[in-house]
């Protein structure tokens, strides 16, 4: 039971982090390497705000700061770096390469800034006016922050899936992902939709950053990097372009990791995500729910 609670919480965390990445990867062809940095820096902004003003902020305010900073950073990254790269690239392969390296360069900047600010020490929201407490629940323990993460996870997960499936803008966004040329022929404004998608992705990264900072107790400048690699695994597991696939991938990985920790000595946990990723790529390169990518060999 306790394992189940832990696995679901971890799955929600992975999901919140990976969904934004999946969204822009599947639609805009942007594999954003800076996603982890945005996640970390959004949480750090909340910490910095409290430290500088000397005020104690409630959880809701910290989450809001996370969302706003994340969305802002993400849009800036898109407009200033990623979009110019996409515009200049002459084919898909070179676009992928340049986006990758641009993201890597970008990712380094917030990490370096936070390392300087904190001397690489952990930062946390303990100065905030939010107390983490835990309760007995069906013979297991569950904390209030875990409940918040569950609620936010379910709400946002549903919202994003519905947005993509039901709304006009979601449909338009998906059509860019399928064929951007046809999409623009049909009069879809890719620029505005791209900014919207990046803002949603960054906002979710920021939100998960703030939530995790509370849930894990502390983050460091490098915290985003670990999640970034896991998110790759999750997205490919679920299939690039499929939101539902990403959600399934997140819970699958969280479950697998929790089981492995519970039943083995734990030193192989890191190999799980990458081993799974490798296997899925071999057996079903398009992922669990992904569409077959049309590509010339």
């Amino acid at each position: 039971m306790q394992e189940l609670i832990n696995a679901v919480s971890l799955g929600c965390i992975y999901m919140l982090f990976a969904m934004g990445m999946s969204l822009v990867w599947g639609t805009l062809d942007v594999l954003n390497f800076a996603h982890g940095s945005i996640f970390m820096f959004s949480a750090f902004s909340g910490f910095y705000l409290m430290q500088e003003t000397g005020n104690s902020l409630p959880l809701a305010a910290l989450l809001l700061v996370g969302v706003v900073v994340g969305a802002l950073m993400s849009v800036l990254a898109y407009q200033l770096v990623l979009r110019p790269i996409l515009r200049r690239a002459k084919d898909k392969d070179s676009a992928e390469r340049q986006i990758l390296i641009g993201g890597i360069g970008l990712a380094g900047i917030p990490v370096a800034i936070v390392q300087i600010q904190t001397l690489s020490n952990p930062f946390s929201f303990r100065a905030g006016s939010f107390e983490v407490a835990s309760y007995d629940f069906l013979g297991a323990r569950i904390s209030n922050i875990q409940i918040v993460i569950w609620v936010v996870g379910v709400l946002l997960g549903t919202a994003v899936v519905l947005w993509l499936r039901r709304s006009r803008s979601g449909l338009a966004l998906r059509s860019i992902g399928v064929d951007s040329e046809v999409a623009s022929l049909m009069g879809i404004d890719q620029g505005r939709l791209g900014v919207a998608a990046m803002a949603v992705a960054g906002g979710m990264a920021g939100l998960s950053g703030a939530l995790l900072c509370v849930s894990f107790g502390a983050l460091t400048a490098e915290s985003g990097d670990v999640l970034l690699l896991k998110a790759f695994a999750i997205i490919i597991l679920g299939g690039v372009g499929s939101m539902l696939g990403t959600i399934i991938g997140a819970f699958f990985l969280a479950g697998a990791e929790t089981l492995l920790i519970a039943n083995t000595s734990g030193t192989w946990v890191d190999a799980v995500s990458f081993g799974l990723l490798f296997l899925v790529l071999l057996v079903r390169p398009q992922g669990i729910l992904g569409r077959q990518e049309v590509r010339r060999t």
Partner: peptide
């Protein structure tokens, strides 16, 4: 980091 971004 800026250098790498500009190069990209």
């Amino acid at each position: 980091g800026l250098f790498v971004v500009v190069a990209a």
